[in-house]
């Protein structure tokens, strides 16, 4: 069973320490929610694990099934089974959605998808996420609304079938309808049982649609409290004040 293990992770940005000793273990099939106030370092955790060059790992380890993730390039991490759904997906002008998806699936699976099933699979994925198939010919994320970008991230999640998915505030900026579509997508991936999910969020709202197995409260660059789904209910009622002012 695939396991992502983060041990005593310290990360700096521009010589400023943002993560101060993060410990976290996520197994295939599990869903973890990381909840915390703005500026707590939640996104830094996501980008550090994905390998963004702006973040400097000062100490600690990250492994996926025992393999050293920090020694891998960004694309190697993805091919090893990591996926990051971004809070602000990047526009790539001139690269069509269909070309991008096919290139990504080919890279992850190690061979090009069979043309016969590819078109059908792609159309089904678009339909599940309520995205107009005409988007296939558009440039990646260019001119997409905020909600369309998030749905497109989840579409990629479903197509690439990672061992471990980090969803960085995929719920932010979504109206209720889009939130339902996105949550249903994440739940489908979850029900497959082959993907572990790390759901990073500021709000408890999405947890009404995606029930986590574990909740971690993230403040000041580390996990300060852990528990089951009931912890999310407590956060909804009382907010982060208890940990922030402490």
């Amino acid at each position: 069973m695939a396991t992502l293990e983060i041990n005593d992770l310290h990360v700096a940005v521009d010589n400023k320490e943002i993560l101060r000793g993060v410990d976290l273990t996520v197994k295939q099939g599990e869903t973890h929610a990381i909840m915390g106030p703005n500026g707590s370092g939640k996104s830094t955790l996501a980008y550090s694990v994905a390998g963004h060059p702006r973040y400097t790992i000062t100490s600690g380890t990250v492994t996926l099934d025992g393999e050293d993730v920090l020694a891998m390039t960004v694309d190697e991490r993805a091919r090893a089974g990591l996926f990051l759904a971004m809070q602000y997906p990047v526009e790539v002008p001139g690269v069509s959605v269909s070309n991008f998806l096919r290139t990504a699936v080919t890279a992850i699976e190690g061979e090009a998808p069979k043309l016969r099933t590819w078109v059908k699979d792609l159309n089904a994925a678009f339909e599940r996420l309520s995205i107009d198939p005409a988007f296939k010919e558009r440039s990646v994320n260019e001119g997409f609304s905020g909600g369309e970008k998030k749905r497109f991230e989840v579409l990629q999640l479903e197509l690439l079938k990672p061992k471990l998915a980090i969803l960085d505030e995929t719920d932010s900026g979504l109206d209720v309808d889009a939130l339902k579509v996105v949550s249903a997508g994440v739940n489908r991936v979850r029900e497959s049982g082959t993907t572990g999910t790390l759901l990073i969020t500021h709000y408890t709202r999405i947890l009404r649609y995606i029930r986590p197995d574990y909740v971690h409260v993230f403040v000041g660059g580390r996990v300060v409290e852990e528990g089951g789904p009931e912890l999310a209910d407590l956060l909804e009622a009382e907010g982060y004040d208890k940990w922030v002012s402490a």
Binding site: A50, G51, T73, D75, F83, V90, G94, N99, A107, I108
Partner: peptide, 28 residues
């Protein structure tokens, strides 16, 4: 734009292919 490169690479696409996609996209 290194962010474009990062985005493509998080999808498993190697750096050279990613650069090629971005530059081809620029001229497309």
């Amino acid at each position: 734009d290194d962010e474009q490169l990062f985005y493509l690479m998080t999808r498993g696409i190697d750096e050279q292919t990613a650069r090629r996609l971005v530059v081809r996209g620029f001229f497309a």
